[in-house]
Design a protein around this nucleic acid. Structure first.
Lengths: 202, 202
DNA sequence: GACAACATACCAACCGGTCGGTATTGCCTC
DNA sequence: GAGGCAATACCGACCGGTTGGTATGTTGTC
């Protein structure tokens, strides 16, 4: 955020404006105004608006990747504890944030562009799948330790966690209230607990 | 779909185009071309593009409301069976459909317009909340019969089902493959079963 | 002949993108 | 370390097409 160069100022402006208004509704001029740079600077660094969106998706993945890498849920020894703490961490990330601040750039962008811009779609997929992969690693370890014979796959459960989060964001946007998202995340937490509790009984 | 008048042709064109390209990327001219009418007809029936979107949301709610009202899951006597059959029905609705055909207009539109157009947001909320209410009725009955002392509320679980579906659609769009959505719906089904199975053990 | 249901022609604002130019930086040579 | 010079970073006026929206006609029906 501190960077003074036009490129990173434009990328951060994109995170803010696209999460607020969506990709199509965000004009290049809006991004330039928000970033405090001119149109010339925009097209010097990005060959098109779509190119900026792809770069913004990568920028987002880098920022959130660092956030989750340094998050406290890794401290637990038991991977199942890590998983539950991850879900709690996701719920905690909603607190005190407005809807544009709390929601996911990739989910917002891919919803608009999945048919019209494969480049943006792929950039969003890479970010979502990459994060899901790190969660799948935790789930895999938890499964090996606590539910080795369970029929569900770690990868599928990891993607499901992301689906719940993305869906919770949509409900929050419709209600114009982030609180409803927290309730859905609570259901996700309960699901994970039941899933492993059930497995342990076998 | 059969209606020959310009208004319903425009509404059906809106369902198709907005689900494919989103609200902002769908131009009034595109809608007129798709519907086979002129711009004059458009602005005769709708005072603005936003007005069309609000009407399209209501149109969507009416169509899907009728679809779910006549769906076979109501035939089960036990409301818990109805709920599980509803979830299976939602999974079945994905089969043989392209992504724009399988996804939800309201979730797509509200993602783009929640900040910029309260009228569209409210129309989307009404449709989503209305459908969730009918599911909440089934869940309430199932809870009374099978899990009267459970701590979760029927309303919250009903909203969670919608969150999972909306999130599954986003993952499907990112992957450009509807299959992933089915897996998330399967997790939802397992959650409901575990939730009631767990309650019965108490 | 009034009124709804369209069609046609048109407009001003806006949009993504271009282009010619300038300021700043980094590097090479002596 | 001074001078030169090319690449990079940035500026902002401008362009042509597109956009949502309007104003005015035409047609069919009760």
């Amino acid at each position: 955020m501190k960077q003074a160069n036009a490129k990173s100022k434009l990328l951060n402006a994109a995170l803010k404006l696209i999460r607020t208004s969506g990709y199509e509704a965000t004009a290049v001029d809006d991004l330039c105004t928000e970033a405090g740079v001119t149109k010339g600077a925009f097209f010097h660094h990005f060959k098109s608006k779509q190119d900026l969106a792809v770069a913004a998706a990568a920028h987002w993945s880098k920022i959130t990747g660092a956030l989750f890498a340094s998050a406290p849920y890794h401290d637990y020894e038991d991977p199942l504890d890590q998983l539950v703490a991850y879900i709690d961490f996701r719920a905690q990330l909603l607190e005190g944030r407005s809807i544009p601040e709390a929601t996911c750039l990739l989910g917002t962008m891919v919803q608009e562009t999945f048919e019209t811009s494969p480049a943006i779609r792929d950039a969003c997929l890479a970010g979502i799948a990459g994060h899901a992969d790190t969660i799948a690693g935790i789930i895999r370890a938890a499964k090996e330790r606590h539910a080795p014979r369970a029929t569900w796959s770690a990868e599928s459960l990891a993607l499901h966690t992301q689906a719940v989060l993305q869906g919770a964001f949509i409900l929050a946007k419709a209600r114009n209230d982030m609180e409803i998202a927290r309730e859905s995340i609570l259901h996700l937490r309960r699901y994970v607990e039941l899933l492993f509790h059930h497995a342990k009984e076998d």
